[in-house]
């Protein structure tokens, strides 16, 4: 347990949310890029089957 004096954090503290958001968003984007072509084809087929012209 440290008892050092704390200094006021710099404005960089406002960039901390990016440390959480970027990995999650990057993972979502990677999954999207990997599976979107297949999902797009399936959706197109489903739309042709299920939607009336």
């Amino acid at each position: 347990m440290s008892t050092k004096t704390e200094r006021k954090p710099g404005r960089g503290i406002y960039l901390l949310p990016l440390a959480v958001a970027v990995p999650i968003a990057a993972a979502a984007a990677a999954v999207f890029i990997r599976f979107w072509p297949t999902v797009h084809k399936l959706l197109s087929i489903m739309i042709k089957l299920v939607v009336k012209a």
């Binding site: 901390l16 949310p17 990016l18 440390a19 959480v20 958001a21 999650i24 968003a25 979502a28 984007a29 999207f32 979107w36 797009h40 959706l43 197109s44 739309i47």
Partner: peptide, 25 residues
């Protein structure tokens, strides 16, 4: 960090949805 991070992820999801162009399909 958690709250603002979640907000940023939602914004990124909105961008991914816009790229999907489901309405155009």
């Amino acid at each position: 960090t958690a709250l603002a991070g979640a907000g940023l992820v939602l914004a990124a999801a909105g961008i991914i949805y816009a790229v999907m162009q489901l309405k155009a399909m």
